[in-house]
């Protein structure tokens, strides 16, 4: 139940995009078409599910306070290096993903364009790893949280893309077109998700 709780909360109650407002740049830019959004959602879920537990291992056995005990160097606390090393792991994995997509799903890779390598500096992906450290998740919990947070972000962008496609047909005031209405819609989506707060298993 604990794992289900983590996944549920990561998707609905503490959604990285709609609650913590992470990954907004990509969120607003890639949501013009639903098909691309779905592709990105899958990519992010994959990256999260792999990198969060990987970063957990890195933190637990290399960086955290007392982590280097197994080497007999228990007195070190290299927590402050987490930013650089996490991004390193994420960058490496995104590179691998890029190569894989190039081989097996070239149309998706083309559609995502520059936003695929930009996943390396995506706030949501780094944010999930940082939250994992802050909340002291174990290995399995990290994997669950990685999956949940990625899927949650993916869900948010798919919802947003479908609404945006509809809005193209609407009469939006000139000043609000594009960015302005995108913010309003995202705000309303976030409000909707905020209503799920307090649900637990």
């Amino acid at each position: 139940m604990d794992l289900v709780n983590i996944v549920f909360r990561a998707i609905f109650v503490e959604n990285l995009a709609l609650n913590f407002l992470l990954g907004m740049c990509t969120y607003i830019a890639v949501s013009q078409r639903v098909t691309t959004a779905i592709g990105l959602a899958i990519a992010i879920t994959l990256v999260q599910t792999i990198t969060v537990p990987l970063n957990y291992l890195l933190y637990e056995y290399l960086l955290g306070p007392g982590a280097l005990d197994w080497l007999g160097l228990g007195g070190f606390d290299l927590t402050f290096l987490r930013f650089v090393t996490f991004i390193g792991i994420i960058a490496a994995f995104v590179q691998i993903l890029e190569l894989a997509l190039e081989r097996y799903a070239p149309r998706l890779q083309h559609a995502l364009g520059i936003y695929l390598p930009l996943l390396t500096v995506n706030c949501a992906i780094l944010g999930a790893s940082l939250f994992m450290v802050q909340r002291n998740y174990g290995f399995v919990e990290s994997a669950a949280y990685g999956f949940g947070s990625g899927a949650g972000w993916g869900l948010a962008i798919i919802l947003f893309a479908t609404i945006r496609e509809r809005i193209r047909e609407s009469e939006v005031p000139a000043g609000l077109r594009g960015l302005g209405i995108a913010f309003v819609v995202t705000g309303l989506l976030a409000l909707g998700f905020a209503g799920l707060r307090g649900i637990e298993f």
Partner: peptide, 17 residues
């Protein structure tokens, strides 16, 4: 709540544009 930041931002963008 965080959504309010979005609404304020939307109004701000509207005003600027």
């Amino acid at each position: 709540l965080t959504p309010s930041a979005f609404f304020i931002l939307a109004v701000l963008v509207w005003w600027i544009r």
